[in-house]
Design a protein around this nucleic acid. Structure first.
Lengths: 208, 208
DNA sequence: AAATATACGGAACATCCGTTCATGTGTCAA
DNA sequence: TTGACACATGAACGGATGTTCCGTATATTT
């Protein structure tokens, strides 16, 4: 499968990738030929046969421009590696978290941070988590979940205000602990109405 | 320009978008026709004429699958709010900064952070900037420039080691100041060989 | 040396595919 | 009604494009 490819084959493959990316359609045999310096369509066919045999592309017989790239030679790495994440603003109580009206804007972020497709984001207000390296204005990314492990940094909803804190359950209470010695922990009795864990913080992004 | 399009035209446009996205090539007139329920190629041609007139696509005459989408009809998620940024590893002295061999991997990031297209990234090693909220393992983004203003956070090259520090020029010396009271500033005499400012830090990304 | 495989060139062929033309349908205004 | 126009069918035409067949040149193998 993972065989070596020749210079000519690599040229052809790169040309095909470029054409699909820039023009939205694969080239014809003759177009490929004139690019890689092969004058007969049969020569090009030969090159494509080799690339297909080695698993870099697939062809549909008797179809004009019937070349498809396989995942290994996909130039769409750009698309695949990113995710469009909604940034929440004020959160209207009672609405689903990702309701249109809660969404302020969208940011793109690498999938290594936004692993699940329901990841959401939040602009940080205030300095309460500064000792955890979370500053005012940072955009934090969170994975939705309604509980968390002790010590996790979570996004919690208090009324219609979302807040970022360390999560510390203590018996029948929950401590939301800031990372700033000038701030006091928030103590929540279990079952307090309007209190909810929205998710666990999994990443952050900062403009400096 | 911004005219209304009919149901049939919208169907055709969406089908074309889908085909280009999923198969990497535009459909033929007959393929479009069978999808939108128009049996003659001339009927399809009529629909495409309308879409071209209204600015949703462009066609190359006498070319199989010669349809190109204009920017306005690109699906939104691809509408590149993002940028693919190279993450540098060890930096080989004497090589251009973005030389292939310096690049460890790529990450996608929102354009609001990577504004210029020569933005580069770096994995942070060590805790020397922790009081600036820059932690070990963070990926920082920098815009290339060979000088900076006092107080800027910069990426500097010392030999083949890149380091992130506050930039504080002092007469004929340069102070590279850490944001950690347990670390000492680095003092560089002007003209020291192997010393170079690589860029100014403009953003960061963290996986938690 | 003979045989075989690789890597093309060149031309004929068959199919694909956009274009054109002749010919309806409806709808709407004059 | 009449005529103009938007929208479609169907068929025929011709250029675009993949396929096939035959040949050649070089290298590798037997």
């Amino acid at each position: 499968m993972s065989e070596q490819i020749t210079e000519k084959q690599r040229n052809a493959l790169e040309f095909i990738q470029k054409e699909i990316n820039e023009r939205g359609r694969p080239p014809t045999l003759r177009e490929i030929g004139s690019r890689i310096g092969v004058s007969s369509t049969n020569g090009v066919r030969y090159v494509l046969d080799a690339l297909e045999r080695k698993g870099y592309l697939e062809r549909s017989p008797m179809l004009s421009r019937g070349i498809e790239l396989t995942s290994r030679s996909m130039p769409r790495t750009e698309q695949a590696k990113m995710r469009l994440v909604p940034v929440l603003g004020r959160i209207a109580a009672g609405m689903p978290l990702l309701a249109e009206q809660n969404i302020e804007r969208h940011v793109t972020v690498d999938r290594s941070i936004a692993k699940s497709d329901d990841t959401f984001a939040l602009s940080v207000r205030g300095d309460s988590m500064i000792d955890a390296g979370i500053h005012e204005g940072d955009v934090i990314f969170a994975r939705p979940q309604n509980s968390a492990d002790s010590g996790d940094i979570v996004v919690a909803l208090l009324g219609d205000e979302a807040t970022v804190k360390y999560f510390k359950p203590q018996g029948d209470r929950v401590l939301l602990e800031p990372a700033n010695r000038y701030f006091s922990p928030i103590i929540i009795e279990k079952g307090t109405p309007g209190f909810r864990i929205l998710g666990k913080v999994v990443g952050l992004m900062r403009k400096i």
